[in-house]
């Protein structure tokens, strides 16, 4: 069994994860957002045309660089590279001036252009470095592939730190706000018969809970309860209804409200397997008569209030166990009636 497994993994190779895909697009985004000036090296090691090829040799070796701009009267007039140096070495001509070997056809880039411009040049040509000019055509820096990689990595790390801060803030929401009773209320309008988007509200609720620092188990319990309740609104309500979730440090209250058609026999509705769902609802995988039973299993308290011809209210409550409680500023457990 383990052999087949290894083979199958070998064939499939490493798949790109969601996170990878996210990072790739972010890198692409960054290559447009970042400007050349953000990532270029500002330390310019330049030469003048009347220096010798030996000076080039020393400069490149000492600074471990592969090329340098050539400047005359504060103007960029050429570029000298390792390849030019090799030509001079082969000809045993290190005492000649730079002027003889430098390239004068210099491709440059502007400091205010996006990084993607440089990437395009590096990909299309065999150029390895570009002198960077400002709006006055003055040389202000150099850019290489290495500078771009470094710049993008720094920007991604910053992104990551900002996301961490956001997560941290959400999970400390209740700690940061001092009141006698703090609660977070989320409301969702649920449309009748909307099977395509059904579950979206519950999905948002579950994600919000996880972000606030709920345990996976708690998020799952709440998720299942509100999802069943949301689906009930979609299946049964005449005009849709409201799904309301109130998060407090020590408990979670969930509630659905609709204005009809109401339930004639509430006791019967709570029996496992009892359902009045339409064939359409059944074709969507619902109407097993297990919804309310499921909710009951997930919550500590459930109350169904309804009558035929009237609306229906479903109350659900989960008390948080000590380890599940959202940390709050007061540390007081309950403040009933406030």
């Amino acid at each position: 069994m383990s052999n087949t497994l290894q083979e199958s993994q070998g064939r499939r190779g490493r798949t790109i994860t969601d996170q990878d895909a996210h990072d790739i697009t972010r890198v692409e985004e960054l290559s447009y957002d970042l400007k050349i000036a953000d990532v270029m090296s500002r330390e310019i090691r330049s030469l003048t045309p009347r220096q010798t090829m030996r000076d080039v040799f020393d400069l490149l070796r000492k600074n471990r660089i592969s090329g340098a701009p050539v400047i005359e009267n504060e103007k960029l007039i050429g570029i000298i590279s390792q390849e030019d140096l090799m030509k001079a070495l082969v000809a045993s001509d290190l005492s000649s001036t730079i002027q003889k070997y430098m390239s004068t056809q210099v491709r440059t880039i502007k400091s205010y252009e996006p990084v993607v411009k440089a990437i395009e040049v590096f990909m299309r040509t065999n150029i390895g470095r570009l002198p960077v000019l400002d709006e006055n055509e003055k040389l202000v820096g150099m850019i290489t592939k290495g500078d771009i990689t470094r710049g993008v990595l720094v920007a991604i790390r910053k992104d990551y730190q900002e996301e961490e801060v956001r997560r941290y803030r959400a999970s400390h929401l209740f700690e940061d706000i001092t009141s006698d009773r703090t609660s977070l209320i989320m409301r969702y309008l649920i449309k009748p018969g909307d099977y395509t988007n059904g579950g979206q509200a519950s999905s948002h609720i579950k994600r919000a809970l996880l972000r606030l620092g709920a345990t996976p188990q708690l998020a799952r319990q709440c998720g299942i309860a509100v999802y069943e309740a949301e689906i009930n609104l979609i299946i049964h309500s005449t005009n849709g209804g409201v799904l309301r979730v109130q998060i407090e440090p020590h408990r979670i209250l969930m509630q659905t409200t609709d204005d009809g058609p109401g339930i004639a026999d509430v006791h019967q509705a709570l029996q496992p397997g009892w359902s009045t769902a339409s064939p359409l609802a059944r074709s969507m995988g619902f109407g097993a008569g297990m919804g309310l039973v499921n909710i009951q299993r997930c919550v500590d308290k459930m109350e169904l209030v309804s009558a035929a011809g009237k609306g229906t209210k479903l109350f659900m409550e989960i008390h948080l166990r000590p380890e599940e409680k959202f940390k709050d500023a007061s540390n007081s457990n309950e403040a009933p009636g406030i």
Binding site: G198, G199, K206, R220, G223, Y227, G285
Partner: peptide, 17 residues
């Protein structure tokens, strides 16, 4: 494992981990 194929299958899976 399911023979049902609609968006609610995905939602259900998400809710139930």
């Amino acid at each position: 494992l399911t023979g049902l194929c609609n968006p609610q299958v995905i939602r259900t899976a998400q809710m139930a981990d």
